[in-house]
Amino acid sequence: MSEQTEKQDLNEQTAEETATYTEAEGIGEEHAAPEGEAAAELDALRRQAEEAQERYLRTQADFDNFRRRSRVEKEDFAKYASSKLVEQLLPVLDNFERAVAASKDSKDLDSLLKGIDMIQRQLGQTLEQEGLKAMEAVGEAFNPDFHQAVMQVESDEHEEGIVVEELQKGYVFKDKVLRPAMVKVSK
């Protein structure tokens, strides 16, 4: 017998022994799933993956919509934030118009001055309700956070660094300096 034939016989014999051993021991039967069962499991996993993908896409779309709505709401809020204040100032504007109309009909300057004084108080009260307060500067120590010094003057009455005169009122809006007071300071 040739060497090649011997190898072939040996391979056939080994294959037969392996098959016999596998059948006798039951090896591979519990590990080998029937083909139909594997396909069904694969289909179920595909469906789960598709559902997860759809949920992801819906969630992404919801988030994009939320972001867009939030941006629009923020823009609208900024656009109309001062509408409450403007609405409160309308009666002041109406009173100014009435005062101007009354002054054209009547030449009474005293009543015009009295009307303008009342309007000024009304305007001050409206702004104060919104959180605007005038600063008291005269007699206070100079503070660059609240005062803008435009002049220094000699003063026998005040120590150095005291506000002697207020040239323009300063205002605080809630807790923030809106406009510093323009002042003269003693040296």
Rank of each mutant, 00 (worst) to 15 (best):
S103E: 11
A141Y: 14
G131I: 07
D105I: 01
L132W: 04
L57V: 02
E130K: 11
L132D: 04
E50V: 10
Q53W: 00
E75F: 06
L167D: 00
S106N: 13
D43Y: 02
A102D: 15
L89H: 05
V92Q: 01
R68N: 12
E30S: 06
E136D: 15
V153M: 00
D145H: 15
A102G: 03
Q148H: 03
K84Q: 15
Q120E: 13
D110W: 07
E166C: 04
F146N: 14
D64M: 00
E140C: 12
N143S: 05
E29H: 03
E75Q: 13
Y56E: 06
R58W: 07
G131P: 06
A39Q: 03
E159C: 01
D76M: 04
L45H: 09
R69S: 12
F66N: 13
S111C: 09
P34M: 05
L112F: 04
S155C: 00
E165Y: 08
V138D: 05
V138Y: 11
S82Y: 14
K107M: 14
E159P: 11
E29D: 13
E37D: 01
D64V: 06
K104M: 14
H158L: 13
Y80R: 02
G161Y: 05
A99D: 02
K114N: 10
D76E: 14
L42P: 03
L57Q: 03
K84P: 00
K114F: 12
G36M: 03
G28M: 07
A61G: 00
A81N: 15
A137N: 10
R98P: 04
A78R: 08
A61E: 03
E166F: 04
A149M: 02
R46K: 11
S155M: 04
Q120D: 06
A81T: 09
T59N: 13
I162D: 09
L167C: 01
